[in-house]
């Protein structure tokens, strides 16, 4: 990874007095570790009339980018299943209107237009900095399992391949990864490498207090970070 790019992202957030990275910033950060994120373009303020959509393929998902909005879906900040330029234009207009109504005070940085990614096995990879033990990594099967069943495992970072594999194996939801009722087994070695990358990120970047890829879709032959959160230490530097 290019640590200069990483430092720029972090410093920019801190200089603006923020602690939450925007989704675009968080994804740019993990991309430096080659964690796959959906192809996307950022639509700034008035550009939506002339959107250059050559680099990404439909269908699309449109998400608001705002430092004032943490839960995008609740305020109408996510619209999916967009097929073409007209769909996108209309969606931008509708989203602007909804946001104006629901969160009038929110500052809008722009709109993230992402390629829709097909559903894989949902997992969550998190990292947090414990005051006594330093960086800790969490892995869990995603969606309802993490909230309802608390099906998660923890290890201290940094961790190796064997520890990452063990984090998966100790979950009740492990069969979801090895193939269950006819579904195919996912690429667990690749998944282990992503866990190790998250471990590396929080170990290397001391400003990070919490990081979370949720959900990460895992496939037979790949992974995709659908949403990512990064929260920096709250103390002033």
């Amino acid at each position: 990874m290019d640590m200069k790019v990483v430092d720029n992202i972090i410093n920019n957030v801190l200089n603006e007095g923020r602690h939450h990275l925007l989704e675009t910033e968080a994804k740019a950060l993990i991309s430096q570790w080659d964690i796959p994120v959906p192809n996307s373009i950022l639509i700034k303020g008035t550009e939506y009339q002339e959107i250059g959509m050559d680099r990404i393929k439909p269908p699309f998902v449109l998400k608001v980018v705002s430092k004032d909005i943490l839960h995008k879906t609740e305020v109408g900040g996510v619209i999916s299943d967009l097929r073409d330029r007209d769909d996108v234009r209309n969606a931008v207009i509708r989203m602007r209107r909804d946001l104006e109504e629901n969160v009038p005070q929110a500052r809008i940085e722009g709109f993230l237009l992402e390629e829709f990614v097909s559903r894989g096995v949902e997992v969550i990879i998190g990292g947090m900095r414990d005051p006594q033990f330093g960086p800790v990594i969490m892995f869990g099967t995603g969606g309802v399992m993490v909230e309802l069943m608390k099906d998660v495992s923890f290890r201290l970072a940094p961790l190796d391949q064997r520890e990452s594999m063990a984090m998966m194996e100790e979950l009740r939801g492990y069969p979801l990864l090895t193939g269950y009722r006819g579904s195919k087994s996912v690429d667990r070695e690749l998944l282990a490498s992503i866990i190790m990358k998250v471990s590396d990120i929080i170990t290397k970047i001391e400003e990070i207090r919490e990081i979370e890829i949720n959900p990460l879709f895992v496939y037979e032959d790949g992974v995709m970070a659908v949403d990512t959160r990064v929260i920096l230490e709250l103390e002033e530097r």
Binding site: G126, G127, V146, I211
Partner: peptide, 20 residues
């Protein structure tokens, strides 16, 4: 904690991770 990760882990889980 602001994330699931922070909210899911009580201190005991972190001790267990340390023991491991």
């Amino acid at each position: 904690a602001r994330s699931h990760t922070g909210a899911m882990g009580g201190k005991y889980e972190i001790y267990r991770a340390a023991f491991r």
